[in-house]
Design a protein around this nucleic acid. Sequence first.
DNA 1: TGTTAGCACTCTATTAATTTGAGTGCTAAT
DNA 2: ATTAGCACTCAAATTAATAGAGTGCTAACA
Lengths: 361, 361
Amino acid sequence: MELDERKKKILQAVIKNYLETGEPVGSRTISKYTDLNLSSATIRNEMADLEELGYIFQPHTSAGRIPTDMGYRLYVDDMLSTREKELDKKDRKLDDKEESLKTMQEIMDKRVDRIEEVLKDMAKMLANNTNYTSLVSMPQANKNKLKFVQLTQVDEGKLLCTIVLEGNIVKNEMIQLDRAIDQQTLLKLNLLFNNTLNGLTLQEINFDMAANMADQSGELGELVSEILNAIVAAIGAADGIEIFTSGATNIFKYPELSGNENASRLISTLEEKEMLTNLLTDSLEEIGESTTGIQIYIGEETPVNSMKDCSVVTATYEFEDGVYGKIGIIGPKRMDYEKVLDALKNVTGSLDQKFGKGKKK
Amino acid sequence: MELDERKKKILQAVIKNYLETGEPVGSRTISKYTDLNLSSATIRNEMADLEELGYIFQPHTSAGRIPTDMGYRLYVDDMLSTREKELDKKDRKLDDKEESLKTMQEIMDKRVDRIEEVLKDMAKMLANNTNYTSLVSMPQANKNKLKFVQLTQVDEGKLLCTIVLEGNIVKNEMIQLDRAIDQQTLLKLNLLFNNTLNGLTLQEINFDMAANMADQSGELGELVSEILNAIVAAIGAADGIEIFTSGATNIFKYPELSGNENASRLISTLEEKEMLTNLLTDSLEEIGESTTGIQIYIGEETPVNSMKDCSVVTATYEFEDGVYGKIGIIGPKRMDYEKVLDALKNVTGSLDQKFGKGKKK
DNA sequence: TGTTAGCACTCTATTAATTTGAGTGCTAAT
DNA sequence: ATTAGCACTCAAATTAATAGAGTGCTAACA
């Protein structure tokens, strides 16, 4: 059995209605709502078919139907493809866009230098606008080139190592040494590191290079490798991806999420943040493939266990040339996907425009 | 009517029992549990008195009694004073202490330089150990002396300003200028700032000084004041106190907290963090007064609205000489105060010992 | 053959009624 | 002053009754 046009329409209607009400939708509702002009009995037959096909189900006999993950998936895919088409007509919901862009602008103008603050604010704004939970990752520096390194003596035998990466991401690391260092040596070291490391990415600073540098610097060898370690540690994956979340408590607004104890598990996950990297790193390599950098996980599709009752939508933003970050929304499966997509697109758009080169047409 | 010895004992018993069970405790229970050897009827009479005095109450007629805030307060104060006395016998729960000290040590040794990480881990550990919610504030730098400033040119007209405070707290700030700066000027500026600002606290860098410096530096005046602003901003209260929380979801373990919608409000507060500063700054000036730096808020006593059903215990730790931070536990009013006090004391103890000078005898 | 009206049936949700038990307050006896 | 005893209260748990939404199926209809 295939999905004919009518079935599609009915499915659509069921889902749309469920998105709005959160209640199982029955045949009579559909019969009245749609312009199909069919009796509830007919709808019932069709819905039985749709159930058999796996797009909808009843929580119990004598209840209306609810979309399955598969149903949502069809709905969302459909929506995405029509959106693509409509993208040319730029007039889509211009008013909405305007408004949220303005808010965005305000946030951006506040303090451009403090990326962290900007991202946090952005997450907050997203959560407020959508009434879902939002998360934002700091732009990943891993693949980013080193701009310069600076060593400064802070105390006896205590060096402060300041590192600036392409994209003006700054990292600090304290290095504790077992002896003091004179000004001369410090200068030499600074020169050495800058000459050798400039323009390299973290990946390119490998063991060979470390050995090489240590050799070349003779008696300072040990010192050099010690410092190099610190540098790698400072930039490195060691400290993972930084992620900010906001609006975690919004999930209490959706009974299907807040009812069971999963609510607590979900909030726990958001608090721990470790699991969240799965959501945001997973799809980073697929950027080329997808036109928009947008990823949608529905229910069981999500890689995070505590979110199996949720849907997650993530998008990629370009922070500076080549430096990407991710931003996402977590909500109930019956989230307003349209709204979420718009919100994400606005935000990433603003970010690209403000920081990035706006390379997307 | 005054609290005679027997009433005190009964109150104590009621509270102790309630702490453990979380259920209203009735007269029979007390009659059996205590060594008072009194019948339930007698206890009932006494309990009626205690209720009239405001130390306990019944959630409804024909239920057992529950301590009021006032009851808790008496209990806690009493405990504190006996603890003080017992402080000499150092053998208190040595085994427990040992264990948690070990964990502490592990965390500390991990990466001493990354205070932030250490504090986060500590918060996590505290939350895990106590099954309550924990919060830790970054040591406040406001009153801390400036150790040195370093300006570096990162891009055309983009300066990186690295600031190190006493206690080796590092701050970075990007400064966007409308013109490029040559190496010469940069050196001059660095010298100027270091000479002028070294050893000063944020408070001491005031307007007069700014004007003065600007004047002295002639044509560079504008530039100087611009940079000075950035420095102040970087250190300043502008970005508030940084606070980490952990174990927010632990509140779901206590029905009296998780039941109503306050749970959500509480978690919201923890997420926002802004309100939390009230908890942690409020009592900072009272350090001198209280011997231990420990503060206990019970129910209505807490300055944060969403925590009126909770108790909050905070303690002060000394990070480096003169740099204080706070650490706290949020839990139900019937929290295990003993345990919490011990946990906090261990942690602050370890911190003082590791970083600070252990000035407390 | 596809559509529809009609009806019996199912299951949840809500409300009401009933029962249970813990705990109290009071009184009268010790 | 203490206690045994009893009547009383109230929340919580259990059971019963009712209402209502929605289905599946059958038989009639165009």
